[in-house]
Computed example of a mutant assay.
Amino acid sequence: MDVRALEEADLELVCRHREQMFREAGRDEAVLQTMTAHFREWLRPRLHDRTYFGYLLCAAGEPVAGIGLMLIDWPPHPSHPVSDRRGYVLNVFVEPAYRRRGLARDLMQRAETEFARRGVQYAILHATDAGRDLYANLGWSGTTEMAKPIASS
Score class of each variant (00 low, 15 high):
residue 1 M to I: 10
residue 5 A to K: 15
residue 10 D to P: 06
residue 14 V to I: 10
residue 16 R to Q: 07
residue 21 M to R: 05
residue 22 F to D: 01
residue 25 A to K: 01
residue 26 G to Y: 09
residue 27 R to L: 12
residue 28 D to A: 15
residue 31 V to P: 01
residue 33 Q to N: 14
residue 33 Q to I: 11
residue 34 T to I: 11
residue 35 M to N: 01
residue 35 M to A: 05
residue 36 T to P: 04
residue 36 T to Y: 06
residue 39 F to R: 11
residue 40 R to W: 03
residue 45 P to R: 04
residue 45 P to Q: 06
residue 49 D to F: 00
residue 49 D to P: 01
residue 50 R to S: 13
residue 51 T to C: 13
residue 56 L to V: 04
residue 61 G to Y: 02
residue 63 P to F: 14
residue 64 V to F: 01
residue 66 G to Q: 00
residue 66 G to R: 00
residue 68 G to D: 03
residue 70 M to N: 05
residue 71 L to E: 11
residue 71 L to C: 14
residue 75 P to E: 11
residue 76 P to S: 15
residue 77 H to M: 05
residue 78 P to K: 01
residue 80 H to W: 03
residue 81 P to Q: 03
residue 82 V to W: 15
residue 82 V to M: 14
residue 83 S to Y: 13
residue 84 D to K: 14
residue 89 V to T: 09
residue 91 N to V: 08
residue 93 F to C: 04
residue 93 F to T: 03
residue 93 F to K: 03
residue 95 E to D: 11
residue 97 A to S: 04
residue 98 Y to Q: 01
residue 101 R to L: 09
residue 101 R to A: 05
residue 102 G to M: 04
residue 107 L to C: 02
residue 107 L to R: 02
residue 108 M to G: 10
residue 108 M to N: 06
residue 109 Q to C: 05
residue 110 R to P: 13
residue 110 R to K: 15
residue 111 A to W: 00
residue 112 E to Q: 11
residue 113 T to V: 12
residue 120 V to I: 15
residue 120 V to L: 14
residue 122 Y to Q: 08
residue 122 Y to V: 04
residue 123 A to Y: 14
residue 124 I to W: 04
residue 127 A to C: 08
residue 128 T to C: 07
residue 130 A to P: 04
residue 130 A to D: 10
residue 131 G to H: 07
residue 132 R to S: 04
residue 134 L to I: 05
residue 135 Y to G: 05
residue 140 W to E: 07
residue 142 G to K: 06
residue 143 T to I: 02
residue 149 P to D: 10
residue 149 P to A: 15
residue 150 I to R: 08
residue 150 I to Y: 07
residue 151 A to W: 12
residue 152 S to P: 10
residue 153 S to E: 08
